Amino acid sequence: METRAIVRIALFAAMIAVLGLLPTFHLPIASGVPITAQTLGVMLAGIVLGPRHGTLAVLLLIFVVALGAPLLAGGRGGLGVFFGPSVGFLLGWVPGAFVTGAVMRALPRLPVFAAALIAAIIGGVVVVYACGVVGLMVMARMAAWQALLATAVFIPGDLVKTVAAAALAQAAARSYPAALGRGA
């Protein structure tokens, strides 16, 4: 892997971490799963870096969190985060970034905004939520319908994040067309 790719991966891992500094909101219906801005970073990692490097950025962040760095929303870090109700969402960032990047790369003929929006919805919402629902079912001992209902409250905010990710991708493509590397 070339140095430039390593730097971009580290930069996106740092960006996701910085998004964790924004204030979080906890809803009682979701068993303590916070509303955070970090999923926006996961979506952008997949859109900009592609499936492989976007996934590596998320894995790097998760590795550093596992080592104890308080980089998740609300200053959480350490192995304990892997035993809480939000673990499904956290681990869902990995396939979420991969699918977001894969969908973005699969839509080279669409305008950047449309491709990024579709990619963010499929990877950053559908895939991450599927993992999050499973995590809630296991860790919070919820029935499937309860977990689906609990995660439904996050959908409006995450759809706003998909639009933001698409707008940022479009702005990046306009200012530096090679930023997204869509044909690669």
Rank of each mutant, 00 (worst) to 15 (best):
116 A>E: 14
124 G>Y: 05
94 V>M: 06
18 V>Q: 07
61 L>S: 02
111 P>W: 03
60 L>G: 09
3 T>E: 14
76 R>P: 03
66 A>V: 01
139 M>D: 00
139 M>Q: 13
83 F>P: 00
45 A>I: 02
11 L>G: 15
171 A>V: 10
154 F>P: 02
98 F>G: 08
62 I>F: 04
154 F>K: 02
98 F>D: 09
156 P>N: 05
11 L>T: 15
141 R>I: 00
88 G>W: 01
92 G>S: 08
14 A>H: 06
20 G>P: 07
55 T>P: 11
148 L>Y: 03
163 V>D: 05
149 L>F: 05
4 R>F: 03
38 Q>N: 11
45 A>R: 01
132 G>I: 03
69 A>I: 02
147 A>R: 00
40 L>S: 05
2 E>A: 14
141 R>T: 09
39 T>A: 08
75 G>C: 10
97 A>N: 08
113 F>T: 09
178 A>R: 13
170 Q>M: 13
77 G>K: 11
1 M>T: 12
85 P>Q: 02
55 T>W: 03
98 F>N: 08
7 V>A: 15
105 R>V: 09
50 G>V: 03
146 Q>W: 00
116 A>L: 12
122 I>R: 09
181 G>C: 12
143 A>M: 09
132 G>S: 10
39 T>R: 05
135 G>Q: 01
77 G>M: 13
104 M>N: 13
111 P>I: 01
151 T>A: 06
65 V>D: 02
135 G>H: 02
134 V>P: 00
147 A>S: 11
4 R>S: 14
122 I>C: 12
182 R>I: 14
96 G>K: 09
77 G>L: 12
94 V>S: 02
160 V>P: 01
87 V>A: 14
86 S>D: 07
145 W>N: 13
58 V>G: 09
91 L>S: 10
60 L>R: 01
151 T>G: 08
43 M>S: 12
126 V>I: 14
16 I>D: 05
78 G>C: 13
135 G>N: 04
101 G>V: 11
